[in-house]
């Protein structure tokens, strides 16, 4: 049995191809698989369609020119509401966009996971989500009510990137955050799932209570990457909070001449091990308190 799915980030990301549709788990500046995103930044990958409840993952991929098209409901870093590199990409017309309501987005992931072409919803009617997207269609209920719905198309993903609290080499995962958002739906919507994990186990052996933290089945997972601190600088409950100091620095780089290139040289090109050292290592992560909302 080839049940050892452990790979290096480089090996895992090498499965991706130019032009692929890639889903990125998490929500805004929370639970983002940033170590995998940094690996993409170092790779020659291009022309990606990125599907994300967007945060700095989207901003960095836009800054690096990796994004051909963005499928999204928002891009924000919460404490810093406006994502600077997303804005630059959007305002210069550098990326195509397909914009959905947050709930429609969920519906699209669900449809893909259920192998449906669409799911009906009222959401999006009478808005420019419908008007600006000529590919988005409505459908009339075949029942007596005759109501008109949006036919939210499946958001089928070639690959999904997720960061989890614990995983074993077989791809059994534990998601321990207070809210783990829609990561389970990304896993179902994708042909190929790459999971990065804070803690890697040989094989999980769980009590019933802990087993409930397993949000999706291991048959959905193709690659497991051991990446402690892999969500930094985003919030990764309960292990560490977001690194506001780092996010501010990243945000500021967008206002400086050659700022992105400097950020890349300092934090991306050095590789993940050096990145973790640069940001202050496990000691720094331990000091990043979970924010109070």
């Amino acid at each position: 049995m080839a049940l050892n799915k452990q790979k290096t980030a480089t090996e895992a990301i090498a499965h991706l191809r130019d032009g692929m549709t890639v889903g990125i788990g998490g929500w805004g500046p929370r639970r983002k698989p940033m170590a995998l995103v940094r690996e993409i930044l170092r790779s020659p990958l291009k022309d990606l369609t990125v599907v994300s409840y967007g945060g700095p993952d989207v901003g960095m991929l836009c800054a690096a020119g990796k994004v051909k098209k963005l499928i999204f409901a928002f891009v924000t870093m919460d404490a810093i509401p406006l994502e600077p590199y997303y804005r630059k990409a959007r305002e210069s017309g550098a990326i195509e966009v397909e914009e959905y309501d947050e709930g429609m987005f969920e519906w699209g992931l669900r449809a893909a996971g259920m192998r449906m072409s669409f799911l009906p919803t009222r959401v999006g009617l009478a808005t420019d989500v419908l008007a600006k997207n000529p590919n988005l269609k409505t459908i009339t209920s075949p029942y007596a009510d005759g109501e008109v719905y949006v036919a939210m198309p499946a958001l089928k993903l070639d690959a999904a990137l997720l960061h989890v609290n614990e995983s074993d080499r077989l791809g059994n995962t534990l998601l321990r955050g207070h809210d783990t958002f829609f990561d389970h739906l990304y896993a179902r919507a994708a042909d190929h799932v790459i999971v990065s994990t804070e803690v890697l186990h040989e094989k999980l052996a769980l009590d019933a209570h802990t087993a409930k933290l397993n949000a999706f089945e291991r048959y959905l997972v193709q690659s497991v990457v051991h990446a402690p601190g892999g969500a930094h600088p985003t919030l990764f409950g309960p292990d560490y909070g977001w690194d506001l100091e780092h996010l501010k620095r990243y945000n500021l780089s967008a206002t400086e001449e050659g700022g992105w290139q400097k950020y890349v040289e300092e934090f991306v090109n050095v590789g993940e091990a050096a990145y973790q050292t640069q940001i202050g290592g496990a000691e720094r992560l331990a000091k990043l308190k979970l924010p109070v909302f």
Binding site: R90, V97, D101, E102, L125
Partner: peptide, 21 residues
Amino acid sequence: DYKKPKSAVLGVRGLPGNSIC
């Protein structure tokens, strides 16, 4: 110009759903 907006804000977020539900 939606394709090249003067100011990109957040995105529609949950407004389509909130407002119709």
